[in-house]
Computed example of a mutant assay.
Amino acid sequence: MNLLLSDPGIYTKGDPSVWKGRIDGQERDWMRWHQLMDCVDLLQQPELQRSIAFLGFCSDEGVGRNQGRVGAKDGPAAIRNVLTNLPVHFSDKLKLKDCGDILVKDNDLELSQESLGAALKLILQQEGFPVILGGGHEVTYGHYLGIREFLKDRNQTLGIINLDAHLDIRALQDGKGNSGTGFYQIERDQSAAGQPFHYLAIGIQEISNTKGLLAYAKEKNVQLIEREHLVTEKLGLIREKIVNFSKSVDYVYLTIDLDAFAAAYAPGVSALAFNGIVPDDLFFSVYNVILDLPNIRSVDLAELNPYFDIDSRTAKLAADLIFKLINKMATK
């Protein structure tokens, strides 16, 4: 595993020079995240207990293969640029660790996904809570590889919640994966191993998925909460569906594709959703249901493309999602 990460073209450790910003004081109530961030090297197997372990996945190779607009490889840097100045609202029981970045070498997405899996497994073994900063949604398959290896000898089941406008369950193209094939690859791997495929997709839109994809998802027992059903009147049913999904598995992995959100709030993505989710009180009620799940174990954010991000709106939305996640984790 460490052999994968030992290549500087594949993995770089956390960089303290990234975490600089405003200083309002040295007492905790006046601090910002950059004052508490500990940059570490996964090759040294750092102590990660009670830590949020950030790891960048600097890839848009899958987006390019998927004929999307590239640029998401620089998403991790854009998110960190906003995170650095966030105020500290969580207790000192929780630590912040920047574990560095996974890179793409020679357009070899598959090697980078395998390397991400190796890094994620290591973080989980060290009892950290991984938050992966994307990067294209090809991050999903690499994230899954790490969880799969971590759970292999633990006799535990995996469930994935995907906040997304797209199902990302399309078949491989010329035998290769891309940013839209992650769940197809996961289902295939789970089936080959005789394991169940637990997938709940929230925010899906008919306009963003072919009838064939929706039929294939139904065939594979994918659970859906479509964008049009994210209304106040159905909040109780939505909460029940999410909670019941989590109760059916041991490990919940949440992946957030930022293109699930309406373009006015998330212009900096690989594929815009003009009528996507509005990040209002209703959405955050749903989001809090997910964050309250006792078995949520890892999270990633995908598809931030800073080259199209007007006023850093998408990066700030991603940072807010992370901010709320960490404040919630600190209370568990």
Score class of each variant (00 low, 15 high):
E226H: 07
Y184P: 11
I207T: 09
L272V: 13
A72N: 05
A271D: 09
L258R: 05
Q190V: 13
G117N: 03
T210E: 03
H166D: 12
D98R: 01
S17L: 04
G276L: 02
I296E: 00
Y184I: 15
Q125E: 07
L120P: 03
L304V: 06
E47H: 13
G276S: 03
Q67T: 10
D92I: 08
S270F: 11
D92N: 14
D7T: 01
G21K: 05
T140H: 14
K13E: 11
P196C: 01
G180T: 03
Q190H: 14
G136I: 12
G64E: 13
A77G: 00
T12V: 10
Q185T: 14
L163I: 15
L5K: 06
L109Y: 01
L145C: 15
A118F: 06
D106H: 03
E47T: 09
N66R: 08
F129T: 02
S115F: 07
V222R: 05
S115G: 07
T12L: 01
D106A: 02
F129P: 01
D250V: 08
I23A: 02
F323P: 04
F54K: 00
Y253S: 12
Y184H: 11
S248H: 01
P16V: 03
E240C: 02
E47I: 13
T157W: 04
Q126Y: 05
A165K: 12
A118N: 10
T232G: 13
D74C: 13
W30F: 15
F150P: 08
A318I: 01
I202W: 06
Q205Y: 05
W30T: 15
W19G: 02
T157Y: 09
H229K: 14
F274K: 10
R313L: 03
Y141V: 10
Q26R: 11
N66A: 04
H89Q: 14
L4R: 12
A264C: 12
N209R: 04
E61I: 14
G180A: 10
E138N: 09
I204H: 08
